[in-house]
Design a protein around this nucleic acid. Structure first.
Lengths: 94, 94
DNA sequence: AAAGTATTTAGAAATATTTCTAAATATAAG
DNA sequence: CTTATATTTAGAAATATTTCTAAATACTTT
């Protein structure tokens, strides 16, 4: 059930900030962690949730792990939001 | 901080289903609750979260409370998602 | 005014999430 | 092969979320 995972992943401010950091290219786990006042372990946990939601992809290079955005899942969420707005017919207010 | 509230509100499957139910017009709290295998109190809790996030608006008629979609907040979320996709320049993969 | 219907609030229990520290893995460099 | 650097995993504590039952509000109808 990847769809629900995506909404869950987006519900945390730290994870949303990580995604925004990745807009202009991939960053290593350490580079990401450096931007937060949290342990690397905590950031690793957040990255694992973003990965499970397929919002990021990882690439291993040397002893670094680089994370990059995967925008294709974002489209699905936008589609769902469009449906929400779209089905609005003539708004039968009571 | 209403923006974070909106993402949180959207992170629960029950609340997303409620929003979808409201696409074609307002429904009373009871009509909504009738669609779920949960107590009215629980649905009332979910409605309060949707209301705080400004995703729904309520109208009181007699001893009923009708809930209707407020799509204007959905636009903000879509804008945020667009930014996420948009800033994707040339994807400096490492 | 009393009784009925619809909804919300309060408080508690169960579950899930976020964060930390310490230990484990993985790869690199000396 | 030993030490150093980067990251993840495990386990625990703190906090937040979801759900329930029972009681409280609110408005209607008799």
């Amino acid at each position: 059930m990847a769809f629900a995972d995506t909404f869950k992943a987006l519900s945390d401010p730290v994870r949303r900030e990580i995604l925004m950091m990745l807009r202009h290219g991939s960053l290593s786990a350490g580079e990401i962690a450096g931007q937060f006042d949290m342990t690397g372990a905590t950031i690793s946990y957040h990255l694992s949730i973003l990965k499970k939601a397929e919002l990021v992809r990882e690439t291993k290079v040397k002893n670094y792990v680089y994370y990059g955005l995967n925008t294709s899942v974002v489209e699905e969420i936008m589609l769902w939001l469009s449906e929400l707005k779209g089905g609005n017919e003539d708004d039968k207010e009571v």
